[in-house]
Write a protein that binds this DNA or RNA. Structure first.
Lengths: 206, 206
DNA sequence: ACGAAAGCTGGACGAGCGTCCGACACCGCG
DNA sequence: CGCGGTGTCGGACGCTCGTCCAGCTTTCGT
């Protein structure tokens, strides 16, 4: 083993540790962002909620934009992973209709705060150029997720989808967003309406 | 005429002038908000863009929240007025399909910035309780507008709507929001896709 | 065990924020 | 003309923000 090999291993381990810490900080930051919203969250809030300090944040992230961007990327990873499971195993059309509604409703209930953050960030992207690429990326992931459900539903029903992937996503996204707003406002019917709406959309669009 | 009558007239004229100035300031503020977004707009920005000063803003509005709320209410008035025209005069189903798509596309193109502000404010409402009532109010107006189009379309086609008013609004809202994001990102197909999507949604939902 | 590098701390700094206020211009009335 | 009320201005105030840094502690290869 040469000395440069040892150096490489060393450097790699250091980088790994650095990255791991970044991830931990970003996850804590994501939690805080989800609770207070993008515009109302300061680096001091994030530092306090993650039990670290301002200096640490600046040690691991050049500035606030880099931290936020890193957080959003992590969020996206969680998002895709979470959604990939929804349309996985359904053997008949009726079961898929049910599972899709239940999946979306469960997601809305369990991760309401994270999705609130997502809509917040997407709105920011309307104003801030620098967010648009990441937002478009996440949107594309979600669109693929919805499209998998739609095509699976069509296949099980022996039909072809009667809409484009973009339209299906837009409609489901609107439904989910509206449900989220009502759910967070304390509307008890929001979840059931999301289930019913999912079923309705799915049967109209295929 | 008694002296109190004269006093009343005088007081009323003063109040009118006061309200008129508030409106003018709010309209200018709305312009600035639409351009820079809620979180990035300071009272100094608003003062500068409206050619007034910080002191004037505070003379006519107790604080920033009152100014913003007043702006949103004015926005809502414009909004409803603007939309009421869309589904007004269509004599056959095909014409309505066409008019609805053109109306939404024209709105998207002409008032992109105002709608961007609307989505911004609605996202803020997810976090800030104090916005929710006004946002819910505007949402309800928009939902009624969409529902008028859907029912008119169903009637002209000799059918009944196959969805609830809430689902129709959610779907159209999602479509419009997605189109807005793409339009602002410079996607040249956004407008055409909105037209096509409107037609598709309308034919699937009735 | 020791020295250097990595990791971390708390506070300082200037900018920008919402708010507030004293001073001044304007105008109709006595 | 002078006077009080209305409208306006620009700066001061206290605060929070993101950024940055001097210096301390911890870690770790040698």
């Amino acid at each position: 083993m040469t000395s440069t090999d040892a150096g490489d291993r060393l450097a790699r381990r250091r980088v790994d540790k650095f990255e791991e810490r970044r991830r931990a900080l970003a996850d804590a930051a994501l939690q805080t962002l989800a609770e207070r919203g993008y515009a109302r969250t300061s680096l001091r809030d994030i530092a306090q909620c993650s039990g670290s300090s301002l200096g640490v944040l600046h040690y691991y992230f050049r500035d606030k934009v880099e931290l936020i961007t890193y957080c959003v990327r992590r969020y996206k990873a969680q998002c895709v992973e979470r959604y990939d499971a929804i349309a996985a195993h359904a053997t008949d059309a009726e079961a898929l209709l049910h599972d899709a509604g239940e999946g979306l409703a469960a997601t809305l209930e369990q991760d309401a705060l994270l999705h609130r953050l997502w809509y917040d960030l997407r709105s920011q992207a309307l104003f801030e150029e620098s967010f648009r690429l990441d937002v478009a990326d996440i949107d594309a992931s979600l669109e693929r997720m919805i499209w998998r459900i739609v095509t699976a539903s069509a296949e099980l029903a022996g039909r072809a989808p009667r809409c484009t992937s973009g339209l299906a996503y837009a409609a489901f996204d609107g439904l989910f967003q509206q449900s989220l707003l009502r759910h967070l406002s304390g509307d008890a019917d929001a979840l059931d309406d999301l289930r019913a709406g999912t079923r309705a959309l799915l049967t109209r669009l295929v």
